[in-house]
Simulated scan of single mutants.
Amino acid sequence: MRKYLNRAAIAALSMTFATEALATEWNVSLWGKRRAFTEHVEKLAELVDQKTGGEFTLSISYGGLSKNRENLDGISIGAFEMAQFCAGYHRDKNPSITVLELPFLGVSSLEQEVDLAMALYKHPAVEKDLGRWNATLLMPSPLPQYNLVGVGDAPATLADFAGLTVRATGGIGKAMETVGAVPTSMSATEVRQALDSGVIKAASFAPHAHMSFGTIENGKWWTTNLNPGSVHCPVVVNTDALADLSDAHRDALLSSVDEALAYYIDFYNNKTMAAWGPALEERGIEQVTFADAEIAAFKEAAAAPAAASWIEENTARGLPAQELYDMITGMIAGDS
């Protein structure tokens, strides 16, 4: 009887160890707090857990694993398996995808932005660029056009931006320079304090971030139609970790991307934007709309020079910059 029980115990333990061996947990590095910007990652975790019966899980951390500007570095050394970052935080580390941050590209919807990003991610030059960090691009975090929340007197014309310190990264920062503003790059989590202390006078964000990071709490005005562009913030995975997944787990992850993005877009369009107007009105924030002629002049001054500079700079890096730019602008033109 003792011999039988020993065998049974061994078999039970073996089954336990086998089950544990099959379980996979990935650490995911985000920042801030759960918000519209992270809903696709949250949905992805839910779908992967469901499809694998809990055998593959994504453990999401909001700032506990890395600083947001260091997420790509963390991916490169395998400190965690998945992360989100914004290209404009370190343009030299991911120059190929900054084409999507050029000002006044004319992206008209979140759906279009997803199409552009997913096409760009498949380009061999882009794969090679991110491959330097052992990173595989998984999905974008599509954002609407950025606009400014500011303190002090509201600008009446674009000339009023002269000398104004503005938190603006990437191509948006370049665009703001053309109207005399002084752009500064800082992470989203630093913006509220900088605005409240007077280090900056305005901040460029998408609506969800203005709400999430509190710029509207003390903000006095909001630009409704500058629309210079948006930042590009992909979700990446460690390439080795992706390769090490079982076929079933890898399929569960990759097959969930489209549904996660669809959920994100629905959430942003129907929940975040529905809350944005009332949030401004409740706080008495002045909404500033510039004349069409001024916006046209802004676009003319900013768009072409920024594109030419980007192409020249990144051609010198060895990227097929003109090809990447033509691909993106050609897709946009084809949709219009």
Results as ranks from 00 to 15, higher is better:
L13A: 10
L13P: 00
A21K: 12
A23R: 11
A23N: 12
R34W: 08
R35S: 15
H40W: 12
V41C: 06
A45L: 06
A45T: 11
Q50T: 13
E55C: 04
L58I: 08
I60Q: 00
I60T: 03
S66I: 03
E81T: 14
M82N: 01
F85L: 09
C86F: 10
Y89R: 04
N94S: 15
P95V: 02
P103M: 11
G106V: 03
S109H: 12
A119V: 14
A119F: 07
A125D: 13
L130A: 07
L138C: 08
M139I: 06
Q145E: 10
V149F: 02
A154D: 05
P155V: 02
D160G: 07
G173H: 10
V182Q: 12
S185A: 12
A188G: 08
T189V: 15
T189I: 15
V191Q: 06
D196M: 04
V199E: 13
V199S: 12
V199R: 14
S204T: 08
F205G: 00
H208P: 02
H208G: 02
S212K: 03
G214D: 09
W221R: 03
V235H: 03
V235Y: 05
V236F: 03
D240K: 15
D251R: 15
L253Y: 11
S255R: 09
L280E: 01
E281V: 09
F290C: 02
F290I: 01
A297I: 12
A297S: 12
K299F: 02
A304D: 11
S309C: 04
I311T: 02
E323L: 07
L324W: 11
I332H: 11
